[in-house]
């Protein structure tokens, strides 16, 4: 168990380092501006006095490392600063929306993961059959579709005739069932997009394994195909499949942005898009940091889990 512990600690340290670098990149991106944020925000017509006042207010008269440190310590204590557009504390704006976005992502994941695994395993089992071809062509098309296309097709088919609401209104007082019903269409959109990726990758991982000698051996022994896949191939395919799931959950993070806008879902993605068009950099930075951290953490978890399922990975350089 000792080696496992060291491995996990190593990965955690690496993850923390990545998070640190990510925060530097997100913070430092504003430094790329020619001139500075204050003059960009105020535009050409601003007088030098107003620019100087805004610079002082934003703390731009401090050197960048000092500002970064103040920002980072604030974020770690849950204080994201104030929005440039609305003057409200960003943490208050994020609180409810973060919960909504996590709810939507988990909802989609709960639908997508089992569906994708079953479809992927069946496609690998019956590869080159009609089912496989149809599933593959369907998956390839779903990957190629922009999210908003799928979303509007679903609205056209399911919302326009009144089965499901096309705009999501959530309130804290709603019961779980009501929430699930209200956010069914955005969750279904995300599910369709993500399932396609996951199914293709699962199928590829299992087909890859089916070429190995021990599978050949099992087949020669006369083991049934289903048993070969479930007992022999699947345990060894776990590492790639866990990776696939993590990659796609990470993909949900970006998919959520477009889908939230289509369905007017009160989540982080919509707030981010609004803030981008208002050029409210403080809010965008905060949300980008949250999304990027979730992404890094998911990848980290996947890394640790897939190493645990396949001890050979422990000895890699």
């Amino acid at each position: 168990m000792h080696a496992v512990l060291i491995m996990i600690l190593q990965r955690l340290a690496l993850g923390l380092l990545t998070l640190f670098v990510v925060s530097v990149v997100i913070f430092g991106a504003t430094e790329l501006l020619p001139g500075d944020l204050a003059s960009t925000l105020l535009g050409q017509a601003a007088t030098p006095e107003t620019v100087a006042a805004l610079r002082r207010q934003l703390g731009l008269d401090q050197p960048a490392p000092v500002r970064y440190w103040a920002w980072l310590t604030g974020v770690l204590q849950g204080d994201f600063g104030t929005s440039l557009a609305t003057r409200r504390p960003i943490a208050d704006m994020l609180a409810a929306r973060l919960g909504n976005t996590i709810f939507l992502a988990l909802y989609a994941a709960a639908l997508a993961v089992p569906l994708a695994l079953i479809l992927g395993i069946l496609a690998a089992l019956w590869r080159n059959s009609l089912f496989d071809r149809v599933a593959n062509a369907g998956a390839l098309s779903a990957i190629s579709f922009p999210e908003f296309f799928i979303a509007y097709i679903l609205i056209y088919l399911l919302a326009q005739s009144g089965y499901f609401p096309s705009m999501v209104r959530l309130s804290p007082a709603m019961s779980l069932g009501d929430k699930l019903y209200a956010s069914f269409l955005p969750a279904l959109t995300l599910t369709l997009v993500v399932t396609a990726h996951m199914m293709r990758m699962t199928r590829a991982a299992i087909i890859n394994l089916l070429a190995s000698p021990y599978i050949e051996m099992a087949r020669l022994k006369g083991v049934s195909p289903l048993r070969i896949v479930l007992r022999h191939a699947l345990p060894n395919a776990l590492a790639p499949i866990i990776n696939v799931i993590a990659i796609n959950l990470a993909y949900l993070i970006t998919g959520v942005v477009v889908v939230e806008v289509v369905f007017v879902y009160p989540g982080l993605g919509q707030l981010m898009v609004d803030s981008v068009s208002k050029r409210d950099i403080a809010v965008v930075q905060a949300i980008a940091l949250i999304f990027a951290s979730a992404y890094v953490l998911l990848n980290l978890t996947a890394d640790v889990l897939s190493t645990l399922t396949n001890p050979r990975l422990m000895r890699r350089k």
């Binding site: 990545t18 670098v21 990510v22 990149v25 997100i26 991106a29 990470a250 993070i253 970006t254 942005v257 981010m272 898009v273 981008v276 965008v284 930075q285 949300i287 980008a288 999304f291 990027a292 992404y295 890094v296």
Partner: peptide
């Protein structure tokens, strides 16, 4: 390490 759409939104 940053999702591409998120990074693009930040830069925009």
């Amino acid at each position: 390490a940053i999702p591409s759409l998120i990074f693009a939104l930040l830069l925009l």
